[in-house]
Amino acid sequence: MISISDLDKKFGRLHVLRSLRLELEAGKAYALIGPNGSGKTTLLKCILGLVIPNEGEILVAGESVRNHWRYREKLGYMPQIGRYPGNMTIGQLFSMVSDVRKASTDRDEELYEAFQLEKMANKRMHTLSGGTRQKVSAALAFLFRPPVLILDEPTAGLDPVSVEILKDKIVREKENGRLIIISSHIMSDLDYLATDLVYLYEGELLFHDSIARLKAETGEERLGRAIAHLMQAHLPSNA
């Protein structure tokens, strides 16, 4: 579904992604992990076309990302920090995005209803708390039933009830055959949600395999411990 080859990105002198190769398939949920500043968000933004890579190519369903925009119909994006026009109300925001997506019918309003955003439809975006903003981001990402969902730290800042609602939704969409990419630092969430693991370290791909195999190889039950094991194997000096 998404195929990334030799992706390279520099911000000035900072080398953020180093010739990354990655194949992501539909029906799987990928956990994108790595230390802070390892290039997770940059990778996601490259797929979205928000960041323009220096070299390499990204294909989404066979279509190149470079200088194209129509492929973004297939993407739903939940940013790490949702920033929205402050003067707009929640209701206006949703109708505007539906307007430019030209999708007024067949919307997936499950999260919109579950998070009870209807009640707050008249609130302006700049008055919202960080958590409510996250809910808006989540509801927008799922709204148009995109085949690919890119979730950048989806559960950070949400209250426990909302986290469970969102996690259930992610699992259901994964079973519907969508491709899901989740970047997160919360291992227990990823353990529950993800089927595959992508580990980035300083812009390089350190590990890419299914979580089941990782657990079998390391003999650990929990993802957090399995990753700790993995890190010790790969970076003996840091152990």
């Binding site: 076309g49 928000l50 920033r83 929205y84 430019v100």
Partner: peptide, 16 residues
């Protein structure tokens, strides 16, 4: 001031 708006629109299927 429109940076948020531009960012939001850029992640939608619209030409830059």
């Amino acid at each position: 001031n429109s940076y948020e708006f531009i960012e939001l629109m850029l992640s939608q299927p619209i030409d830059r």
